[in-house]
Design a protein around this nucleic acid. Structure first.
Lengths: 155, 155
DNA sequence: GATCAACATGAAGTGAGCTTTAGGTTTCCG
DNA sequence: CGGAAACCTAAAGCTCACTTCATGTTGATC
């Protein structure tokens, strides 16, 4: 809580693995907040490292910065987040991960039957049948949750 | 094989769900090849639809266009690919999907113990222990295969 | 043979997520 | 107190995967 728990930017760079420019960028984007010295330099609270760990993991899972910001807004900005704070967030996360895992499993198992049978085409195969919720190919195919979908729905 | 199996761009747009600009872009990028009429307009062979189906699915799984190009280069450019051609590619794919699925499962199960215990931090938890191959957070954390890793390794 | 939708090209624009650059300021250490 | 390393900002640049724009050409139809 006191000033002694404040880290400099360089320290955070070393301990988080994020670049200085990324840290400044995340701050501009509202994912991270800092205090400033009288001279205007950034000082990071110790729990910033947790936020950063969360951000990295979330990025790895495919969340956009927008989504991450939204998640993080459930955390208290000033007080050090408690276990309960993080748990609430992780619950939402878990179901997202499950969604992604299931989508990939469907895709994998679909490949077995669909590519396996040589029919990787737009209309002939049950993989691309619009009535089939397993649909993977073709216009509007939704095999993965939005984060991984690569804007296919725009076409 | 004869001219009657050639589709116009508009036809491919309608049947593949990709935009005309994306098709032209993919061609420039070497993911797709076309023949031309005497007047210079594109004509697509019928199996272009399969390539496109493959491209969409691959994008959905998180492959970059570079990676997709590499995969597709194993396919015969002129002759219509056979079942065996596709099967060879899908084998490589399957293992990639399995990798992704396992990574997500590790992350999900890690969250249970790590966020669950409230220790989502860089060093304290076995999730970020560099000796632990389950490492998810921190510099160099590799929870997901390259396609999903979002360039975290650059920092 | 005129019409007009469909097609062509090159170049510039877009948005996400950062990085790089340029030029100045602060902080720490001896 | 002096010097260097660390830090500051704003603005421009970069990659990826496309889209949009401006302007000109083709080709199927009446």
């Amino acid at each position: 809580m006191d000033a002694s728990d404040a880290m400099t930017l360089g320290e955070v760079v070393r301990r988080s693995g994020f670049s200085a420019s990324a840290l400044r960028f995340y701050e501009r984007e509202g994912l991270l907040s800092t205090t400033r010295t009288s001279g205007g330099q950034r000082r990071y609270p110790r729990h910033a490292l947790r936020r950063l760990a969360f951000i990295r993991a979330a990025r790895n899972v495919g969340l956009s910065l927008d989504e991450i910001r939204e998640s993080l807004q459930r955390l208290p900005a000033e007080r050090t987040p408690t276990k309960a704070d993080w748990t609430a967030i992780s619950r939402a996360w878990r179901s997202r991960l499950n969604e992604q895992i299931e989508a990939l499993e469907r895709l994998r198992d679909g490949l077995d039957t669909c590519i396996g049978c040589g029919c990787l085409s737009l209309r002939r195969c049950h993989m691309s049948n619009p009535d089939d919720h397993v649909a993977v190919f073709g216009p509007g195919a939704v095999a993965l949750p939005p984060a991984l979908r690569r804007r296919a729905d725009r076409y």
